[in-house]
Nucleic acid binder design. Structure first.
Lengths: 338, 338
DNA sequence: ATGAAAGCGCTAACAA
DNA sequence: TTGTTAGCGCTTTCAT
């Protein structure tokens, strides 16, 4: 059978309580040094592994955190998860990943299941701006850190890339290339990333008074290649941009598809900028100019904040913004003369 | 505090034991129907959620399975995980994903941690052909199903794509296009996929007696773009293939890079076939001809086998091979005349 | 510094 | 059909 603490205690010739204290870092100080060594030896000899469920039942804590992502197949998220996992496992936590499939109802279910499983905390990358489930979580005082996306009217810590800076870099880059008719292919405005990038775009364009660019904004309903193509087609029906800043890389890929379908070349006729710098966008034709977001670092930082919250009860509701950079590749070029 | 079974029992005016039976599907038959209803009502009214740790401590089972992948950032694996998760959650299991980072030592650690966490079973996608940790698991009688890759000399059930068929389809396709000097850019032979594809290639080429093609095989040490480029450069140093069948899509991408670096065009000078049909390879330039593997279905089927094992104790050590198909795109063309 | 004992919330064997 | 009881493996007061 399984080796229990009793076995270890017996072998070391001590009481299970003592063995417990000896094996636990926080209580080790209460035990005679020699005893500690004996117990540790016994534990090692027997290959003792504490039963996390027994421990959890007693302490009502689990060494688990839930990570909720909208879609694991979106190449954006694995690096976030990875970054988080590294930090979490360093702190002794194991992570459980739940995929919501971009669905609010599933998100609710996933959060419920995770809570029922007694996770000590949550990293949520699937938040919508208005997210009842998130608000509920916050109301219950569960340690939660938002990743990559924010939620509104919930004072929960969030770690994201600098959406404003990203758009600013893109706009500046395109202006330097002589573009004046810059369009924005906005992502879903129900997501903080979609909204922030959209706002930043409008702010920059209005601020510099280029011109009323309302006709140069289209909204995509989802972050998908197909929707990017559809929205771009809609955009091209009513205006003639020389450049398009897409809400993310999938949309940018769709935009390039749509341009091609109309016989427009990228970047010769229209430049395109993406957002995220997903794997392989450097291999596309043309290689995509895009805003690189430090996803692994976002995940890692969120994990650190969560660990602090879970272990020290420090719930900073502050928001962390990590810098992004523009990666210039082949999908942007000088504006065509017309 | 938390609502416990006692609270429910009290409210329903029954003993906790009865409440337990009433709430559990398997034992519900032992309880008076009216009582069952009362208990269920009470549970609902109190929003009772059983404590999985208490239950697990008692039953020494958890509703959790571990999924071990070599690299979550490899677009190959999320669909497998997804497919498995759907099946698993249908059966009431939650999954814990561990990423081994393609490292044997980490795999061992991950497996150990997962076991310590008392997972009821494991889905392992990171197996090497010779995998001591896997063999150990098998020796301990833990329910394990291998996914996508097999291990040797371990009678564990495995679900994979049909590597032989994939290579056969690729070879046939290239032959039909008039290629005779077909090379193989083999993946790591320490992995069953690398070996099976390599063997299939040699078998087909030898069988049809095309010619001694030893010089037309290069071995990549990892499944990465860089290694694909390196190995292809090596290949081109010593031979002049008109087509290359790569061990997977990453290697194929690397191959195209290497060709380009030598001023060779794909597919005009050299055709390239990948393996897996990862997302976005249809957007590459040229769009990649590749073997499509039903990853989600592989994950799902593996999950079904695992569930059967865990719940009914049926440990079929059989191997399941799912059919693959060739997706013809722009990276293959008629052989150049020379 | 260590032992004793209780109990976390649940299930299951046994009794009634 | 239901209640009783014991105990899963651990931590944590409280004694000693």
């Amino acid at each position: 059978m399984r080796v229990t603490l009793r076995d270890v205690a017996e072998r070391a010739g001590v009481h299970p309580g003592t063995a417990s204290r000896a094996l636990n870092a926080e209580t080790r100080g209460l035990v005679n040094e020699a005893t500690v060594r004996r117990v540790q030896q016994a534990a090692k000899a027997l290959a003792y592994r504490p039963n996390p469920m027994a421990r959890g039942l007693k302490t009502s804590r689990t060494p688990m955190v839930g990570i909720v992502v909208p879609d694991l197949s979106n190449p954006l998220f694995p690096p976030i998860v990875r970054g988080a996992e590294v930090e979490l496992s360093r702190a002794g936590y194991m992570s459980i990943i739940a995929d919501t499939d971009n669905d609010a109802a599933r998100e609710e279910t996933a959060l419920e299941v995770l809570r029922a499983r007694q996770v000590d905390g949550l990293l949520v990358a699937s938040a919508r701006r208005e997210d009842a489930a998130i608000r509920e979580l916050h109301a219950q005082g569960v340690p939660v850190v938002l990743v990559n996306r924010r939620a509104e009217r919930v004072p929960l810590p969030a770690v994201t890339g600098d959406d404003e800076l990203g758009i600013e870099l893109a706009v500046r880059h395109l202006r330097e290339l002589g573009h004046s008719r810059i369009a924005h292919l906005a992502g879903p405005l129900a997501l903080s990333t979609g909204l922030a990038r959209h706002r930043a775009f409008r702010h920059l364009v209005v601020e510099t008074g280029a011109h009323s660019s309302l006709e140069l904004v289209v909204k995509a309903r989802t972050y998908s290649v197909e929707e990017g193509a559809r929205a771009t087609a809609e955009l091209l029906d009513r205006s003639r941009p020389t450049a398009i800043i897409a809400g993310n890389d999938q949309l940018a890929v769709g935009a390039i598809d749509a341009l091609r379908a109309r016989g427009l070349r990228c970047p010769d006729d229209v430049s395109v900028v993406g957002f995220n710098d997903m794997p392989f966008v450097d291999k596309l034709s043309p290689p995509l100019t895009t805003v690189r977001v430090p996803h692994a670092e976002i995940g890692a930082e969120a994990a650190r904040i969560l660990v602090r919250w879970m272990t020290q009860g420090i719930a900073s509701s502050s928001t962390t913004t990590l810098p992004v950079e523009l990666v210039t590749r082949g999908s942007t070029a000088r504006a065509p003369r017309d």
